[in-house]
Design a protein around this nucleic acid. Structure first.
Lengths: 237, 237
DNA sequence: AAGTGGTCTAGACCACGTT
DNA sequence: ACGTGGTCTAGACCACTTT
């Protein structure tokens, strides 16, 4: 999996974190323990751990040790928006309505949407909800979740907590893809959003992965004048 | 500027690259030269250079040395789209039309748009152009460029080369902000794009900086069904 | 063939936070 | 006070690439 020692140490630890074997908060072995385990010098262990810390997978505290990082809502927000946080941040009251929720074995269409690679029939949760700001419709959320990753007892939480928020705080992810385009609302969404059917809407479709597994697919539809997507970035990295 | 030695070495080099003192392709001093210069061990120099290489600012080649990386159009494309490249990549003929081009001293409104921090009256170029795919309108581009950064003799190039493409290949940038929303086309843009006035359009507004100076502001308007913005990303970083 | 960067060692001292 | 991680040293061997 890696041709140098510090890469192997790094990937060994990374695997255990991403698989969930070592959960957020877990104290990973001290540098001197890893030195013994891999029979190498401290610099080599240190290089592996520093790299994991730079990537945000672990947190290092002097005298205390190194710990698997908790998925930081704050940092994730930079790229995966947390709708309730955004609305309350600008001083508006936030509201949430679960419109429908269905648990089923995935159809082929579901697996296509999730870009699921394996050919197993995984259980999925298909739900639809509405976000409100100041009591007015703000966005429609259509979501498909992989129940092989999301624990089933989370489902009850979605009656009162938006699934996106729950996921951000509970499920670490390694990769995501946003697909953004504009459409006219159309009759169904127009009714749910309280706008004219020819209203221009911004649509954000997002897939999120943890390692090789898709965690969720979500389509968010916003009335065009209520929401702007802002991304600040730097070259390369 | 930094409290550890390897951070200071890194930031010294980074400064020279971003200021343009060391241009793309410049061979930076060998590790053993930096060892002498900073009177430190090779590990320390190596840590600084490895970090710069990871960040994509330099390229390291055995036996040859370390070089300031060229602004890779390919990597920039991931986040700042190059419209001609995208259109030809999907096999369509690309067309470009310059609709208007005005050189002037910046008004207050121009400086607001550019988010210009200094209070000097900088010269700007205000232009509008149209991108075509298969001979059909694909996007309208409205752009404001800072002529304190963009050399004036580039202006003639814009008669035949889209300004975005020219900028990507000639002006390195350090930061950018995308602002994305949806609007109905409206009468003027509808005519230029050849769509109905109530057509949903995707708008991408982008500001680009080099250090403290804004390089350009651009607003791109796409018919909603012709274009999707796709962004792949990972957490933290 | 020579010289570069990549990796690794076996030590060291220090800052800092937990105890 | 103690033990952790942060940093640094002065070596070493190797792979690779250019000459």
């Amino acid at each position: 999996m890696a041709d140098t020692l510090h890469q192997r140490i790094r990937s060994d630890i990374e695997t255990r974190i991403l698989s969930g074997t070592w959960e957020p908060g877990y104290r990973i072995p001290f540098e001197h323990e890893l030195m013994e385990q891999y029979r190498c010098s401290r610099m080599t262990v240190n290089k592996a751990l520093s790299s994991l810390a730079e990537a945000g997978l672990i947190e290092r505290r002097r005298r205390a040790g190194s710990f698997v990082a908790r998925p930081l809502a704050q940092s994730a927000v930079l790229q995966i928006p947390d709708i309730p946080a955004e609305i309350t941040a600008r001083g508006d009251a936030y509201g949430y309505e679960l419109l429908s929720s269905t648990r089923r074995k995935s159809t082929q269409e579901d697996r296509d949407r999730l870009r699921a690679t394996g050919n197993g029939v995984l259980p999925v949760l298909d739900l639809c909800c509405r976000h409100l700001a100041r009591g007015e419709p703000f966005a429609i959320e259509e979501r498909l979740m992989n129940l092989a990753i999301v624990p089933e007892d989370a489902i009850t939480a979605f009656k009162t907590t938006p699934p996106g928020t729950w996921l951000l705080h509970h499920v670490p992810w390694t990769e995501a893809e946003n697909r953004i385009y504009a459409v006219q609302a159309g009759p169904a969404k127009a009714k749910l959003l309280g706008v004219a059917p020819d209203k221009a809407c911004l649509v954000v479709e997002r897939r999120t992965w943890r390692g090789a597994d898709t965690v969720t697919f979500v389509r968010l539809t916003y009335p065009g004048d209520l929401y702007q997507l802002v991304a600040q970035f730097t070259p390369t990295r």
